[in-house]
Design a protein around this nucleic acid. Structure first.
Lengths: 339, 339
DNA sequence: TTGTACGCGTTATCAA
DNA sequence: TTGATAACGCGTACAA
């Protein structure tokens, strides 16, 4: 029973005293096999513990039933819940999901590409942002792919993401509706694409509310907790202060809140803060963070749906699906008070 | 150049006007091929963009160069840094790493097992704790495997983990050395193995310090932030209070700190708190959390080393490697004051 | 130094 | 209803 080598279809055939063709049929098209034969085969399968060798199968079929997900950073709090959406959808269609961790290293991306190219995965899901493999390989032969979160620069790979601009606009509008007129944006809207889009939502909302340019404040920050802290420090070198902070993401918001608290301010009485992402920790902040929630599971589901669809019927037109995120109201935003 | 089908070794052979055997040799044993031939082959490879089909290769060789990592919860903050240790080590030996996310579902584990059984991965790294595939399949034919963090129940799979007991003892001893005599342990030392081990470290330290049983306090908590909060709530229904909390992990510590803060206590003046794990957020807590740091990268490296070793020379003896974690002193522990 | 041919475990086509 | 066999892409023993 517990031989060293896994049982092959041939072992089963021998034991059931049929040909390997019959075994294969008994598995894939049971109705084409006589009941008695089928029973013998099933018995033999049970005895040998046979499992079809997926590799040989894929080699023969020219397609595997695995989807490769390429992620630059497994630790990203967004990633794991998106992944679950992905996996459930894949599973419902009989596909498995394998994850490749690129650590933001194009070299590693390339290695996984080889894995793909040898047909060990039927499709590719890219979380890697706009240049997954360095620019050289943009021309490479990619299997059916879908980009998540960030489109792949210069390619026609379909893309599923969040409507950052609309989400950010929601955030800004909520701040405005709460009575704020002097709102600082914290983020790197010079170089980071996602930040740029969110900044745009901020501008759109403030334009609509006819807030003059000179009342707007844009603070630099690359998106880390530390960057939020720093932004606050820099701010106090100016003479005017905003009444609210709109942060490009929750990490930045954490930094801003810490920075403000360190200066002895009482939140949300003295300042309002809103984030973006809704990371798990947002609830446990003090005050609990009002933010824009990434529709993570929905993104995962949509992306996988799109990929499986592409797999079934390869289409040439570039598609782009943007999902609208929701405002989550907690305690970090109130009406502006007087300090 | 950009045909729809990936180039095969045959395409290369035709273009270079040699046999496929020569192409194969030019790749794997270049010294056995005439220089001029080799050049023609290399040129042909460049032109066709040929990549060897890893699947066919593995099918032929009976071994792949991929390691499968099975993880129950990708989102676990411990996981990602361990993974990096793993990957670097694997890479140094020419292996790639693929991750399977089981979501704690034995069914999914079984699916990945099929992947393995068909030889698509040479080895297996189990993060899944003691019953990866439900108890039925304990007898299953597993490829060379190493368990990380938790041993696999009833198997002889080598295991690399943290010395929980020694680490917890360090924590308790630090509390004792800081002057605490009344220390509460928060965790589920009834059912969770890891918790049991950490509890043991607590007991050992308190035994050595001759703290009588009636001065010890054990609070239930399954290890979540919420469970820490709850433990604090329950505590205040008693008449005696400890001066320090030793939490089974950092999440619990966060809950304890929040719970205490919610009751208006000032930390660390009123109570000392120590955690275990050193999650990324530990620094940003208020006060910053003193804790026991998981030697994550080291664990990853060790585990992969052990696996690759097992791959090279299969050994029967059960091995177990326990790594000692370090105490990280930050601000959440002080001498006991008077409340 | 190079080429021919077999086998890895499947699935699918064609006959029987 | 069943069986023999070609093919998927590759590595290698053996022959040339």
């Amino acid at each position: 029973m517990s031989n060293s080598q896994p049982a092959t279809i041939e072992d089963v055939a021998r034991l059931a005293e049929v040909s390997i063709a019959t075994v294969s049929r008994a598995i894939h098209t049971p109705e084409k096999v006589a009941k008695s034969t089928r029973q013998r085969v099933n018995q033999a399968i049970a005895i040998t513990g046979y499992t079809t060798n997926a590799m040989a199968r894929s080699l023969r079929m020219g397609r595997s039933n695995m989807i490769l997900v390429l992620a630059p950073d497994i630790g990203d709090p967004n990633f794991s819940s998106i992944l679950i959406g992905l996996e459930n959808e894949a599973r419902a269609h009989g596909f498995g999901v394998l994850i490749g961790h690129t650590q933001n290293d194009p070299e590693r991306g390339l290695e996984y590409l080889k894995f793909l190219n040898s047909g060990q995965a039927a499709g590719l899901l890219l979380f890697t942002g706009h240049e997954p493999f360095g620019h050289q390989v943009l021309t490479a032969r990619l299997p059916p792919s879908v980009a998540v979160f960030e489109p792949v620069f210069g390619s026609s790979i379909p893309y599923v993401g969040v409507d950052d601009t609309a989400g950010a606009r929601k955030a800004a509008e909520y701040l405005l509706a709460s009575g704020h007129r002097s709102i600082a944006f914290v983020g790197d809207s010079k170089t980071k694409l996602g930040h740029v889009r969110r900044r745009k939502g901020y501008d759109l909302a403030l334009d609509a509310a006819r807030i003059p340019q000179e009342q707007r404040m844009v603070l630099d920050g690359e998106g880390s907790i530390e960057s939020g802290r720093l932004a606050v420090e820099q701010l106090f070198m100016r003479d005017t202060l905003p009444t609210a902070f709109m942060c490009v993401n929750d990490a930045t918001a954490v930094g801003v809140i810490n920075g403000l608290a360190a200066r002895g301010y009482d939140l949300p009485r003295d300042f309002s803060v809103i984030g973006f992402d809704d990371v798990p920790q947002a609830t446990f902040l003090n005050p609990p963070l009002t933010t824009i929630r990434q529709p993570r599971t929905a993104i995962g589901k949509q992306a996988m749906e799109l990929l499986l669809e592409t797999l079934a019927t390869p289409l040439t037109e570039k598609r782009e699906i943007l999902i609208m995120p929701d405002l989550i109201v907690r305690g970090s935003v109130t009406a502006p008070g007087k300090r």
